[in-house]
């Protein structure tokens, strides 16, 4: 039971790293609180759902579609909202309210478009195209059932989302540390005013980060029908709160911190669910408060966030 909970927690935590990753970028670069993060995740989930339902697209292929689509949505959205917001006196606080409004608008539109009842995609169909392709290439068909790790069996969706999450983290890491825009992004992250003074096109850098952030939320959403049971237009709020817990536990700006935050969240959640199940939802909140108070800069952070 303990081993299973631990392993499940690690896999589950990896998925939540993916869920929190985009929020980390947005919060880290712009210092604005995207309370609509979970709603973009919800939209990503519906994107995968409709691609599957209408065209039979394997959700694995919905990942690049969701990424590009929502990246393209994010860019104009940035220019529409954020520069105006940042010009206000207290943008960090106001962003909470602005994005709460956006979250309401998205949920309302999604409800009108998709209805309120639960939707999902059959569990075995995630990665079906990949398995069949592999079978054709090598002659060895992979079965769709659960996957064995250390003698414990887990749903294959957990493994696939875990791998996707690791790839996403690696890509974000490469972007931030190996590309020029990424370098500038980090500069904006550490001192926005100084970056502005040195002539960096802060808006462009931020817009890209915003687009990537929202695109990553949508990618996380592609796995939601498998990891979160089913999807509804109202699901966004809960995902947002968990995302915040995850990124605050890690530390801002560092994708590795988000992974650590996700893993800590996942493992502790699964342990509590195993041994004290009715308290399971209390945990992320307590963990968040405790980490903020004891180690305000996050588990991997250096910067201080005290008043």
């Amino acid at each position: 039971m303990l081993t299973y909970s631990l392993l499940a927690g690690l896999l589950f935590g990896l998925y939540f790293s993916l869920v929190g990753l985009g929020l980390n970028l947005v919060f880290g670069v712009m210092r604005i609180v995207n309370l609509a993060h979970g709603d973009f995740l919800m939209l990503g989930a519906y994107c995968a759902f409709w691609l599957y339902t209408l065209f039979g697209v394997d959700p694995v292929f919905a990942i690049p579609v969701a990424f590009v689509l929502f990246g393209l949505v994010g860019l104009p959205l940035y220019y529409l909202l954020v520069p105006r917001l940042l010009a206000a006196r207290d943008p960090e606080m106001l962003s909470i309210i602005l994005f709460f409004g956006l979250s309401q608008v998205i949920e309302a539109l999604a409800t009108i478009a998709f209805g309120t009842s639960e939707q999902s995609i059959p569990g075995g169909d995630l990665g079906r195209a990949l398995r069949e392709g592999w079978g054709r290439l090598t002659g060895h068909e992979i079965e769709s059932g659960p996957v064995e790790i250390f003698g414990q069996s887990f749903p294959s969706a957990w493994i696939i989302s875990g791998v996707a999450s690791l790839i996403a983290v690696a890509l974000v890491y490469l972007y931030l540390y190996r590309t020029r825009t990424g370098y500038l992004t980090r500069a904006v992250m550490s001192r926005r005013d100084e970056a502005l003074a040195t002539g960096i096109d802060v808006n462009r850098v931020s817009a890209i980060a915003f687009g990537i952030g929202i695109a990553l939320a949508a990618v996380g959403g592609v796995f939601a029908p498998f990891m979160l049971g089913s999807i509804t237009p109202a699901m966004g709020v809960d995902s947002t709160v968990v995302s915040f817990a995850v990124i605050v536990m890690g530390s801002l700006g560092n994708p590795l911190g988000t992974v650590l935050g996700g893993l800590v969240y996942g493992v502790s959640y699964m342990l509590v669910q195993s041994y004290l199940s009715s308290w399971a939802n209390l945990l992320p909140y307590l963990l968040l408060i405790a980490i903020l108070l004891v180690r305000p800069s996050g588990l991997l952070g250096k910067r201080v966030r005290l008043a």
Partner: peptide
């Protein structure tokens, strides 16, 4: 929590309210 600044305070405060409800 008042030691925290800006959005961190807001988020921690939100978490505290949710924790209390749970």
């Amino acid at each position: 929590l008042l030691r925290l600044s800006g959005a961190y305070f807001s988020i921690a405060n939100l978490a505290a309210a949710l924790a209390l409800m749970q």
